[in-house]
Amino acid sequence: MTARLKPSDLLSIGEIARRTGLSVSAIRFYEDKRLIEPVRTGGNQRRFLRSDIRRLSFILIAQRLGLSLGEIEAQLATLPQGRTPTARDWQAISQAIRAHLDARIAELTRTRERLDGCIGCGCLSLEHCAIWNPEDRLAGEGPGPRKLVG
């Protein structure tokens, strides 16, 4: 792969950090998790493909959408290695995570609709809470905040 690459195709870790807004340590973390894979120079320095800017941007967006690192890894594994992903490649990922997003939106909508009761009671009463403890089911497990200590 490196034989076909021109020096202008590759970015240092500092350059990719500047371009993405990520810290160098965050980029190394994603590398350790194998979400991105740099090319190594003859002097064993990391060099990243320009397309890794989009991969890192996807990681940031996917995390904000609530995807786990495992889910992100699975999606990135569908992208081609050694070439810049096309719009079609990214569209396939977008469609793949759509169901996850729809489920998350539904969960947030349900929570929003029930939130007035929680804020209205002022204490998130375990006796009346429809979200965490409907019909006070946790009362049989003992005193205190069972969802937090149980």
Rank of each mutant, 00 (worst) to 15 (best):
R104Y: 07
V149I: 13
I72E: 09
G142V: 02
E107A: 15
R146H: 09
L22T: 09
S68R: 07
E31Q: 09
S57W: 08
Q81A: 15
L126E: 11
S12V: 04
I97Q: 10
R34I: 01
G142T: 03
K147F: 15
R18I: 01
G140I: 01
G21M: 12
I13K: 07
S51V: 00
T20V: 08
K147G: 03
K6C: 03
R98K: 12
L101F: 10
A92H: 13
D52R: 06
S51Y: 05
P143Y: 03
I36S: 04
G140C: 02
E127S: 11
R64K: 15
R40N: 07
A17F: 01
A99N: 01
L101A: 10
I16M: 07
R28F: 03
K33T: 01
E107P: 00
Q91T: 13
T86W: 07
R34A: 08
P145I: 13
N133A: 04
L76Q: 00
D9H: 12
D102A: 13
R18Y: 09
I97R: 06
C121Y: 06
F29E: 01
C129A: 12
I59H: 04
L67P: 10
I131T: 13
R83A: 11
R19E: 12
I61Q: 12
R47E: 02
S125Y: 13
P7R: 07
L56S: 04
